[in-house]
Simulated scan of single mutants.
Amino acid sequence: MLNPTDGCHVEFVEDDITHWHCIILGPSNSPYEGGHFKLDILFPDNYPYVPPHVQFTTQIYHCNITSGGHICLDILSNNWSPILTADKVLLSIMSLLADPNPDDPMEIVVANMYKRDREQHDRVAREWTTLYAMP
């Protein structure tokens, strides 16, 4: 068990240091507050030269995260750098929860709602948090 950053809990899967299960706490003052969001993290053989594969296994209503858990985050793809650490990746994901980027969405309907009716968006996101992410 390791805890690389505040708001995260990480465990190795079957003592495999290249496969982690992580729980990220929903950020305060966000519609995800109080939620415990599970992630699956796989570090490839050529890490740190390529990014880890990170995927949400908890359903989340977020414009930058697909219903299948895939994350639209530049440091997990074209802006990856070997100097980035797992800690930085987790911090970036927590930041994405606190501050979505509706201008680069993976879920267009969610992004449109975020832009057009933020109150409704936050209400739905809180409902999903209650349904899927409460401990």
Rank of each mutant, 00 (worst) to 15 (best):
89 V>Y: 01
60 I>G: 05
108 I>W: 03
123 R>I: 02
95 S>N: 08
27 P>F: 08
25 L>V: 05
118 R>I: 05
8 C>I: 09
131 L>S: 05
24 I>S: 03
35 G>W: 01
69 G>V: 05
42 L>R: 11
79 N>K: 12
57 T>D: 03
124 V>C: 05
117 D>H: 04
4 P>F: 14
129 T>R: 04
112 N>Y: 07
6 D>Q: 11
28 S>K: 04
87 D>N: 08
10 V>F: 11
125 A>T: 03
41 I>K: 05
95 S>F: 07
3 N>E: 09
131 L>D: 05
103 D>S: 14
42 L>E: 13
17 I>N: 14
132 Y>C: 11
111 A>F: 12
17 I>K: 13
116 R>N: 06
58 T>D: 06
104 D>W: 09
30 S>G: 02
31 P>G: 04
16 D>W: 15
130 T>A: 06
101 N>C: 14
118 R>P: 04
15 D>A: 15
74 D>N: 15
42 L>T: 08
99 D>I: 01
75 I>S: 04
9 H>C: 07
107 E>I: 12
30 S>M: 02
34 G>V: 02
112 N>R: 14
105 P>A: 12
99 D>V: 01
53 H>G: 01
56 F>N: 02
35 G>F: 05
99 D>Q: 08
18 T>M: 11
118 R>H: 07
20 W>I: 13
108 I>Q: 14
92 S>L: 11
1 M>G: 15
87 D>W: 00
38 K>E: 14
79 N>T: 06
40 D>W: 02
55 Q>M: 12
62 H>F: 07
7 G>I: 09
60 I>K: 05
113 M>N: 04
25 L>Q: 10
123 R>F: 05
16 D>R: 13
45 D>R: 10
69 G>E: 09
117 D>W: 06
28 S>G: 00
13 V>M: 14
67 S>W: 11
106 M>Q: 11
134 M>K: 08
67 S>V: 13
36 H>R: 12
96 L>D: 02
50 V>D: 07
73 L>G: 03
115 K>I: 08
58 T>H: 04
118 R>C: 03
40 D>R: 10
61 Y>C: 10
65 I>K: 11
9 H>R: 14
86 A>K: 09
28 S>N: 04
115 K>M: 10
12 F>C: 15
129 T>V: 06
77 S>G: 12
23 I>W: 12
56 F>Y: 04
60 I>L: 04
100 P>N: 11
3 N>M: 10
61 Y>E: 06
62 H>I: 03
79 N>C: 09
37 F>I: 02
47 Y>I: 01
126 R>C: 02
72 C>M: 07
128 W>G: 01
126 R>T: 01
48 P>T: 02
5 T>G: 00
110 V>P: 03
33 E>M: 02
6 D>W: 06
17 I>V: 15
92 S>V: 11
59 Q>I: 10
131 L>T: 08
13 V>A: 12
112 N>D: 15
114 Y>M: 07
60 I>F: 05
6 D>P: 05
7 G>M: 07
38 K>T: 12
50 V>E: 13
122 D>V: 01
80 W>T: 00
109 V>E: 15
